[in-house]
């Protein structure tokens, strides 16, 4: 176990009878990372998180969170780990503040500290105005933000967020994502699961793709993109009237260009960075006519779709 690995699993397996929910998961998440767990519903994301929390016992394999085995020492793990379950719920008859006070009490926080912290957190998640209102009247987005405050109350080293953006409106998603980013800034290791890839792409330092219990790919979005598509991060499509072989070779020479494919009157250039100015200059210099140019970033969607198709 390396010093910086906050989460480490070795052949972690969970079977419900014949059904294998998680199959030999080997995972390493370093400190301060925002790790995205990707995969369709039923791929084993939640089960993996539950095993890491010690809420579910693995059938075989070992999990370690900050060096503790969640099965053997669940309390030590739970003390440093925050968990926002999918479809999180709060006590509807209690106010937002009372709900957080209960969590603070469960974490054995002294009352005075807790109260101050709760006020700060409610302010952070933008719920200080409704702090004294009963949670029963909260919208889904408000509940999710309250959930993040609930996770943060114990100053976790690791936060597991299960589908934190599911079922909330775009504005709400934005607020939640901003909050997750701010968590990461506080050196909290965040593991979040999602099937909404755009959002994950925006902030995950690393992702793992789960399909039917297998971890099919793991790494940064860039690297996964390269691995998956076999090209650069960007794909530039340039429409040129009658591209000449000479033009293609000169584009190939531009630093950072990985591959050029030509079709009838368009060029598909994959490259590491946005090289549109250089490419445009090269085309114009070669006296060809540049009709239009489009740039496309490799999306996680594609990577994901590719692995998913494979498995």
């Amino acid at each position: 176990m390396s010093q910086q690995d906050v989460i480490e699993t070795t052949d972690l397996t969970k079977a419900y009878g014949d059904f294998i929910a998680v199959d030999k998961l080997n995972l390493h998440v370093g400190e301060g990372e925002v790790f995205g767990f990707l995969g369709p519903n039923g791929a084993g994301k939640t089960t993996s998180i539950l095993m890491l929390l010690g809420l579910t016992e693995p059938t075989s394999g070992i999990a370690r969170v900050c060096g503790y085995n969640p099965t053997r020492e669940p309390l030590k793990v739970k003390r440093i780990v925050g968990y926002l379950p999918e479809k999180v719920g709060f006590y509807e008859d209690l106010t937002a503040k009372q709900n957080l006070e209960y969590t603070a009490a469960l974490n054995n926080l002294p009352r005075g500290d807790a109260s101050k912290k709760i006020n700060e957190l409610l302010d952070t998640v933008g719920l200080s105005e409704v702090a004294e209102q009963k949670v029963g009247k909260f919208s889904h987005g408000m509940i999710q933000r309250l959930g993040i405050a609930d996770v943060m109350i114990k100053d976790p080293k690791v936060a597991f967020l299960d589908e934190p953006t599911a079922g909330i409106d775009p504005e709400g998603i934005d607020q939640v994502l901003t909050l997750i980013m701010s968590m990461a800034k506080k050196k909290v290791t965040v593991v979040l699961s999602s099937h909404q890839l755009h959002q994950v792409q925006r902030m995950c330092t690393r992702v793992g793709i789960l399909a039917k219990g297998h971890l099919v790919a793991e790494g940064s979005v860039d690297r996964l993109g390269r691995d998956a598509i076999g090209g650069g991060k960007f794909r530039i499509e340039a429409q040129v009237a009658q591209p000449t072989p000479k033009l293609i070779s000169s584009i190939n020479k531009i630093k950072g260009v990985i591959n050029v494919e030509s079709s009838e009157n368009s060029l598909l250039i994959s490259c590491d960075e946005d090289l549109r100015p250089q490419i445009a200059k090269t085309i114009i210099d070669s006296d060809s006519l540049l009709v239009q140019m489009k740039i496309e970033e490799y999306s996680l969607q594609e990577i994901y779709m590719k692995y998913f198709r494979e498995s």
Binding site: V81, P85, N108
Partner: peptide, 14 residues
Amino acid sequence: TSGNLSRLLSQPVY
């Protein structure tokens, strides 16, 4: 049913 149980059990309590 209210979704509190898993949140409750993820707190450091037996």
